[in-house]
Design a binder for these strands. Structure first.
Lengths: 329, 329
DNA sequence: TTGTACGCGTTATCAG
DNA sequence: CTGATAACGCGTACAA
């Protein structure tokens, strides 16, 4: 029994290190590392290999990420910066596809709900040391330079997506259906402001090109039903009544549709409403500009992998948008 | 020029370490560490303090997370395991509140979209070394033991939430409005199966207690509008027609409502529909069992902080559910 | 204020 | 071919 106690057994309350595995296996730490990492060019006899594997398993050894990263000079973390998780459907799909692609390359995708008020980016790097940062929204100049300082690579999603075109397509469709006075439902949520501005700009451009008046802007807050009714009233009270509305996205289009229903009216017959996204909930009755989530995701994945490999990204634009006509417009 | 070259200047292409700052400041690495960490009980003269701070700033030094974690034996990462980001509103709110609370404690919340098929949990620990894991869905037994092996603390969200009660409240409300034949719209998405089963169980229990037949189950797939119409048909064709339906959540309730509208019917008059969540989109017209997201978030935060401090959690149950009556039921 | 040992995994170099 | 020794990455904190 005294013999047992003097043996360098498992240290209580401490992490199981590769050194523990080495001791218990009667081999060196180097050998353990070679075995655990399947290092090529290093021949280890099958017997020791099995012994090390079994011992590691038995002791429950898990290589400690910080030590690995310190030695390797890089972490396997890709950090996605997101302002808001409720972007919903498209975002979720993109992040899923991205994580699968990264997994094949030995990286892991972690998502951070980023807000400058909670914690400046500069405080993020001493806590996480990502190999690459994917920014899912816009970034300010100081934010971008902070990422540069952190030595993480950076991929921005903004710019990859033709938001203006989406706004244009909405107006073009409404125009083709005879609508000449168009409303625009702009989101109140500040976290989508940049995107929203682009879509609106596209709608405005299309109106100008088609020779119809600028869209009549109304702000709609997803968290406040009153704003929906206020918008409907404003459009109805316009000098020349609005007959068709572009909604920033399907969520807002759905709210407008619900608002109409609540008033005994109906989207499509009393007021044309068109959204953007083609979210599942919209698939009953909402006319929309569909975003091809998979194609969009592929572009981002391509961009991320290129950046990880220090390749220059070849911008292979694919068609991401498609009109889907349903009852609401 | 030769003199310049022999100076230990900034090493090209390499990280700026605290040693670089120490050299450039003409002080020891220890001093740099003390200054940068504002260590109490360590008197550093104001002049060197300012010098070090300025030098660090000038060189763009950022403490390297892996080295910190290795030395301290802990990382500042709290990892939230999520099956699916489209849980939406409630989840987003919870994760926001949690991150704010963790920020105050010097931790950062990172979210991982977890799927066993993409990457087993055991491969996650060598990449991330979280101080604590928050599981936002259910975990299997091997998954839980994998977390144990990783030496991360674990907080499960399941169990904190009275899902059965939500199902009960739905049935109780429909019953109070005179409905005796009740349908149940069950989500097809497997990632919410555990939660959904609990809500359904509650609905069943309430039916039994009230002496009405079991709810007639129909599966509804958010991504497939046909399932909505199939469900509506099935309920209408039941031996005794269904007059009220409990939806697993507001998204499904909204789909049912849209389906009714598409058929020229209306939720509330032709078929009563009640959801769960009170998501923003539901706030026009959908009767629902509201989840108090902030109170729910507070519970989780409390649980997380208790676990981080190795305190035993005191289960301070608050009322999380509230009936909200609108047009749809 | 400083010197230095430490945390842990990786890998170049060396010995049998 | 099989394996061991030792240096390294970087920040922290104890002893001096």
């Amino acid at each position: 029994m005294a013999g047992d106690a003097s043996l360098p057994g498992p240290r209580p309350g401490r992490r199981v290190t590769s050194a523990d595995v080495a001791r218990a296996s009667g081999v060196s730490r180097a050998t353990v590392s070679y075995v655990l990492n399947n290092v090529a060019n290093k021949s280890v006899s099958e017997s020791t290999r099995q012994l090390v594997l079994a011992t590691a398993q038995r002791l429950g050894h898990i290589p400690y990420a910080p030590a690995r990263s310190l030695r390797l000079g890089r972490s396997d973390i890709v950090l996605a910066l997101v302002r808001d998780l409720t972007y919903g459907y498209i975002h979720d799909r993109v992040l899923e596809v991205l994580d699968v692609a990264l997994a094949r390359r030995g990286f892991v995708l972690l998502i951070h709900r980023y807000s400058e008020q909670v914690r400046p980016l500069s405080e993020l790097w001493p806590m996480v040391a990502p190999a690459l940062v994917v920014s899912m929204g816009g970034l300010s100049v100081p934010e971008m330079s902070s990422i540069q300082d952190s030595r993480a690579k950076l991929v921005g999603v903004q710019g990859l997506f033709p938001h203006e075109r989406a706004g244009e397509m909405q107006v073009e469709y409404l125009h083709s259906r005879g609508h000449r006075r168009i409303g625009y439902a702009f989101p109140a949520n500040p976290s989508v402001e940049l995107i929203a501005a682009e879509r609106l700009a596209g709608a405005r451009r299309a109106c100008a090109r088609l020779g119809i008046p600028e869209p009549v802007l109304q702000e709609v807050d997803l968290n406040d039903g009153d704003t929906v009714f206020a918008a409907l009233d404003a459009w109805a009270a316009a000098p020349e009544a609005i007959t068709g509305v572009c909604a920033h996205n399907d969520d807002i289009a759905l709210m407008l549709s619900s608002g109409l229903t609540a008033r005994g009216l109906r989207a499509g017959t009393d007021l044309a409403v068109i959204g953007v996204d083609n979210i599942p909930l919209a698939r009953i009755g909402i006319t929309t500009v569909e975003i091809n989530a998979d194609a969009f995701a592929d572009q981002i994945v391509q961009s991320v992998l290129d950046t990880l490999d220090d390749r220059v990204a070849e911008p292979k634009q694919r068609e991401l948008l498609r009109l889907i006509v349903r009852d609401s417009a």
